[in-house]
Amino acid sequence: MSGKPKLIYFNGRGRMEPVRWLLVAAGVEFEEVFLDTREQYVKLIKDGSLMFQQLPLVEIDGMKMVQTRAILSYIAGKYNLYGKDLKERAFIDMYVEGITDLMHMIMMFPFSPPEAKEKNLALIMERATHRYFPVFEKTLKQHGQDFLVGNRVSWADVQLIEAILAVEEKIPAVLLGFAQLQAFKTRMSNMPAIKKFLQPGSPRKPPPDDHYVATVLKVLTDEWSPH
């Protein structure tokens, strides 16, 4: 089955944004269907399109794929962004899992109650600068290469640039003291496909606002987080 991948999710970042990033980095065009009613979501469940009654949903190569990790690993493998052997893949997996942990904090931040936002932002800053970013700073410095694994761009690099930019939106000075990551950010942001993705009018979604949060909660109703 040919045709562009179809991404079915809310009109916002959430768990679909890393899928958009990875497809863009692979040079793959895609279509999007945005959910904004409870009825659309229920219909997908009744149609059997959502294996675990969870979003995101990506239709690709004749499959209806769910579970973000499965979707991303399929795309990474299909488009040669998943290392050259099992050892490289293991490192990519480790890096991706770490970045995903940080991005989960970013993704859930808009759903925080107002009284918790300051505390949660401080936690994001602490984790980014003391737990996650130092790992990538050290990796890039030690092997002296432009990318995290195998000296070529991989899924891990794509997720890292997404995370850096997402954290910077909330904490602009977060990369102070991370010279390797500053250079990495410049390199990745200047790759033609990613540079285009960062321009206005691209499929990249803006930071989530109150409307996005309200839409997610309305569609999922008793489901609190945008799985």
Rank of each mutant, 00 (worst) to 15 (best):
A25H: 08
A25L: 02
A25N: 14
V28P: 08
V28A: 10
E29W: 00
E31Y: 01
E31V: 04
E32P: 04
E32S: 06
E32R: 03
F34Y: 15
L35T: 07
L35V: 12
R38L: 13
R38H: 14
E39L: 15
E39N: 15
Q40S: 13
Q40C: 06
Y41G: 07
V42N: 06
V42H: 12
L44N: 09
L44K: 03
L44S: 04
I45W: 05
K46L: 08
K46W: 08
G48D: 01
G48S: 03
G48W: 03
S49A: 10
S49E: 14
S49T: 10
L50N: 12
M51W: 04
Q53P: 02
Q53S: 10
L55Q: 11
L55C: 06
L55K: 02
L55I: 07
P56H: 07
L57Q: 04
L57N: 02
V58L: 07
V58T: 11
G62S: 10
K64W: 00
K64P: 08
Q67T: 06
T68C: 06
T68Y: 06
T68W: 10
T68V: 09
A70L: 01
I71E: 13
I71H: 05
L72C: 11
L72Q: 14
L72K: 12
Y74E: 15
Y74G: 07
A76H: 02
A76R: 00
G77I: 14
G77L: 13
G77V: 14
G77F: 13
K78M: 05
Y79K: 08
L81G: 08
L81Q: 02
Y82I: 01
Y82E: 08
Y82P: 07
K84A: 03
K84W: 00
R89L: 09
R89D: 08
A90M: 10
A90V: 09
A90G: 11
F91A: 13
D93K: 10
D93T: 14
M94L: 15
M94A: 15
Y95F: 13
V96H: 12
V96E: 12
E97K: 10
E97T: 14
E97S: 15
